[in-house]
């Protein structure tokens, strides 16, 4: 992983964090806000797994385990959110 790529990943992660914070500051609520937050969180997590943890060039099995965890947790949170909607 070269330094330029790592720097780009950092900028994307920081921008995504600002987006998450802004959704909260603007009182974002409801299904659309939840979907946006989970999507941003998944994108951030994926970048950390692939580029910081260095799993991008590794066999799919290992990437699949960590990205699968991220997907499973996001899905469970989404399901819990939806069942809470009256």
């Amino acid at each position: 992983m070269n330094t330029r790529h790592l720097n780009i990943v950092l900028v994307v992660l920081l921008a995504a964090t600002v987006a998450t914070f802004e959704i909260g500051e603007r009182g974002g609520a409801g299904t659309a806000a939840m979907a946006a937050l989970l999507t941003i969180s998944f994108i951030k997590g994926r970048l950390v797994v692939l580029d910081f943890m260095g799993l991008r060039g590794v066999k799919f099995f290992w990437r699949g385990l960590l990205l699968g965890w991220l997907l499973l947790v996001s899905t469970l949170i989404a399901v819990a959110y939806w069942i809470s909607i009256p």
């Binding site: 998450t20 959704i23 909260g24 974002g28 797994v49 960590l66 991220l70």
Partner: peptide, 13 residues
């Protein structure tokens, strides 16, 4: 990675 899920879940969502 864990905090990336925790922050939106607990502080924002």
């Amino acid at each position: 990675l864990v905090w990336i899920v925790l922050f939106p879940l607990v502080y924002v969502m």
